[in-house]
Amino acid sequence: MTLNQLRSFIAVARHNGFTAAARALRMSQTTITSQIQVLEEEHGVRLFERRGRRIELTQVGSELLQFARRMVDLEDDATMMLKDSAGLRSGELKIGAVSPYHVIEIVEAFNTRYPDVYLAMTFGNSEAVLHDLGSYGCDVGILARDTDDDRFHVQHYASYPVMAFVHRDHRLAGLRSIGLEALGREKLLMRERGSTTRRALEEGLVAIGLKPRVAMEIGSREAIREAVIRGLGVGTVSESEYVPDELLHPLPIIDAPVLTHIYVCCLRERRRSRMIAAFFEALQRTGPRKGMAISPKARTAKPAKRRQPPDEAGTD
Rank of each mutant, 00 (worst) to 15 (best):
3 L>S: 09
4 N>Y: 09
17 G>C: 02
17 G>S: 04
18 F>P: 03
19 T>F: 05
20 A>H: 08
20 A>C: 03
24 A>C: 03
25 L>E: 00
27 M>E: 12
28 S>C: 02
29 Q>M: 07
30 T>M: 13
30 T>S: 15
40 E>D: 07
46 R>V: 07
48 F>L: 09
49 E>I: 14
53 R>L: 03
55 I>G: 02
56 E>S: 13
62 S>T: 13
69 R>F: 06
70 R>Y: 10
76 D>A: 11
80 M>R: 15
82 L>H: 11
88 L>R: 11
88 L>N: 04
92 E>A: 10
92 E>F: 06
98 V>Y: 05
100 P>N: 15
105 E>T: 08
113 R>K: 15
114 Y>S: 04
121 M>Y: 12
126 S>W: 02
129 V>H: 01
136 Y>W: 12
138 C>R: 05
141 G>L: 05
150 D>E: 12
150 D>W: 08
158 A>G: 07
160 Y>M: 02
163 M>A: 00
165 F>E: 00
171 R>I: 10
176 R>V: 04
179 G>N: 01
184 G>C: 05
187 K>P: 05
194 G>L: 02
195 S>K: 00
196 T>P: 00
201 L>N: 00
205 L>I: 05
208 I>S: 06
216 M>L: 15
222 E>Q: 15
228 V>F: 04
232 L>Q: 15
246 E>H: 12
246 E>C: 08
247 L>V: 04
250 P>R: 00
253 I>M: 04
258 V>P: 00
261 H>T: 08
262 I>F: 00
265 C>Y: 01
268 R>K: 14
270 R>N: 11
272 R>S: 14
273 S>A: 08
288 P>Y: 01
290 K>A: 09
301 A>W: 11
310 P>A: 03
310 P>T: 02
311 D>F: 15
315 T>H: 10
